[in-house]
Amino acid sequence: MDYLLQNPAIVFELLLQHLLLVSVALTLALALSLPLSVFIAASSRWTTAVLGVLSVVYTIPSIALIILLIPLTGLNAWSVIIALILYAQVILTRNNVAALRGIDPAIVEAARGMGMNRWQMWWRVQLPLALPVMLAGVRLAAIVTIGIATIGAKFNGGGLGRLLFDGIAQTGRYDKIWAGAIAVAALALLTNLAFVTLEHYFGPARKIRGSL
């Protein structure tokens, strides 16, 4: 706790690095996952195949996955970012597909019956209905990437994990371990809370109440 109070600038900088790492990975993962999910959700065969491959990736422990990437990308932040993207990809795609397939076909048919074109159906019917479930996926992906980014510090990825690993390397620096653990736990818990609030905001319950 002392370290946290005495070196707020250092902790803050590491926190920013951590956030940058996580947000770059999440943004890229989302950009990949959205088109992929829309594409595979239309066919059960594709869904099973792609989700099957992704779940094998997800089974591999994060530290092992980062190491397996080293021969390809070298020991730098890119190995970490690619590993983060892969993990986030699994969670996001799984949730996006579930969200899209969970939409009642009758509603989509009703939209078509009202004369909406494909684009309108997507923006005004499918996306709003799928959004709460998709957001739950983004929340989970954010939590998981925050955790794995902590390990990434060992691979020159930067971020709050540095405090934890430094605290181990320098004997007896429990203050650094505490500072790192508190900061990263707070980051994860606050991120979770922020997304839960967002999910609630976009949830169907609030909208129905709002329109009455």
Partner: peptide, 17 residues
């Protein structure tokens, strides 16, 4: 739920003190 959100590395390293 809160425990699950906290990164495992933090939990592991906090056992040392």
């Amino acid at each position: 739920n809160a425990l699950r959100v906290i990164p495992s590395l933090a939990i592991l390293f906090l056992a040392i003190p």
